[in-house]
Amino acid sequence: MPGDPPAWSPAPAQAQAQAQAQAQAQAAALLEEAADLLVLHRDFAAAVEKCEAGCDSLAAGAGPGPGPESSAEVKCSLCVVGIQALAEMNRWREVLSWVLQYYHVPEHLPPKVLELCILLYSKVGEPQVMLEVGSSWLRDQTNKTLSEYGSLLELYLLQVLLPLGRFEGAEELVCGCDVLDSEQQLAFLGTIGESRCQWSQQEERRSAAEEQHDAATESVLGALSQKLLTMLKLLRRALRSMSSHFYLLPYKKMLFATFLLYLVVVRLDPASPTSLPFVYKLVQLFRQAWAAVLSPIHKPAIRE
């Protein structure tokens, strides 16, 4: 009615708090369902879907400022469950990009999420994936105030930098970290030095093994080449002997014998009765010509 006072409406801040509370409750319920799907039912694909729905719910209910601590914990737990489900499906290549779509930049990753990512990619033998992500997270000033910073720094050194042989980068990171005291820096530098020595020894053993393999390959190829050369020499001698033998035969008699053979086999029809006497005479002539060709007079002399 015109005279009635306006209906009461909550303040914008209160309405935003209610929306965040509802989103958090919905995300917590989805987190519980995702955990059940992961652990009890082993339905990893459905678990990932629940985690994605929970993260989307928190994003939709978030205000312009940072959300409450409880919402951040729920979001981190959703990502932890999602990482485990993706790893179970052997979709570990998607883990980092999947996580960053909810945190956008590496510096905002929660310590637990960063730890799981480092361990996962180290386990599958791809630590270089976390090289830039870990470096960006550790160099962020806000992250240096976290209690987990020291353990993550050690994990990053042992699982990413040192396996990749990035010793100079590791020393630079440790020496430039003002969070560590002198004793911690000396301990980390000692670990880096030991890893460098082991790396050098492995490189020397690898080089020695490669040299031995190359030497063995060369010896095998040399033996095969020597055998092939011997066979070629024998073949050349045989061809030379055959050529010298045929060179001593009279060419006219050889051509005549070849022509007679051509007449008998190709030009005449042996099944025809009229051709039998002629064929018989040609065969006799062929035998006489062949005997003359291979007579002892034309055989090559035997060299002593």
Rank of each mutant, 00 (worst) to 15 (best):
C177T: 14
S136T: 13
E69Y: 04
L131S: 06
L158S: 13
Q198H: 01
S147W: 04
W92C: 13
Q14W: 02
K50S: 12
P68K: 03
Y262A: 07
L31T: 00
R42E: 15
G82T: 02
L96Y: 13
S71H: 01
A187R: 12
A223P: 02
W137Y: 13
R206Y: 11
T230F: 01
A187Y: 07
L119Y: 09
L189D: 07
A35M: 08
R240V: 10
P110V: 04
L100P: 02
K50G: 06
L235F: 00
G61M: 01
D43Q: 15
L152H: 09
Q159M: 05
A301H: 12
R91C: 13
C79H: 00
R91N: 15
Q128L: 15
D56P: 00
P296G: 02
S207E: 14
Q18L: 06
P2N: 08
V81W: 01
V105P: 04
A271G: 10
R42Q: 15
A85S: 14
P12I: 04
N143F: 11
Q128E: 15
S147L: 06
H108C: 09
M89K: 14
M130G: 04
R240N: 12
L162A: 06
D181A: 08
Q16C: 03
E168R: 12
C175P: 00
G190Y: 03
L58V: 01
E210V: 03
Y121H: 12
I192M: 10
V265K: 12
Y280S: 14
Q84V: 05
L268M: 09
L228K: 13
A29Y: 05
W8V: 10
L78Q: 02
C76K: 06
F259E: 11
G176W: 08
V264N: 01
A87N: 10
T191Q: 15
A19E: 10
E33R: 14
S200T: 13
P296R: 07
V264R: 10
I192E: 10
L186T: 11
R240A: 14
G54D: 06
A301Q: 15
E304H: 05
W92L: 10
S77Y: 00
T191K: 14
A23Q: 00
V133T: 15
V266K: 11
S70C: 00
P250K: 06
I118K: 05
T274P: 00
D181F: 05
E132Y: 02
I83A: 04
V266M: 08
L114T: 03
A17R: 13
A23H: 02
I118A: 07
E107L: 09
S241V: 11
A60N: 06
V160S: 07
A223N: 09
S9A: 12
V265W: 08
L158Y: 07
G61L: 01
A62T: 00
W8P: 03
R42C: 06
G82K: 05
A60C: 04
A216V: 03
Q184G: 09
A11N: 07
E203C: 12
E94W: 11
P110E: 07
F188R: 09
E73D: 08
S244W: 08
Y251D: 12
A46L: 11
G165L: 09
G134T: 09
P273T: 10
T274M: 05
E32S: 09
E183L: 10
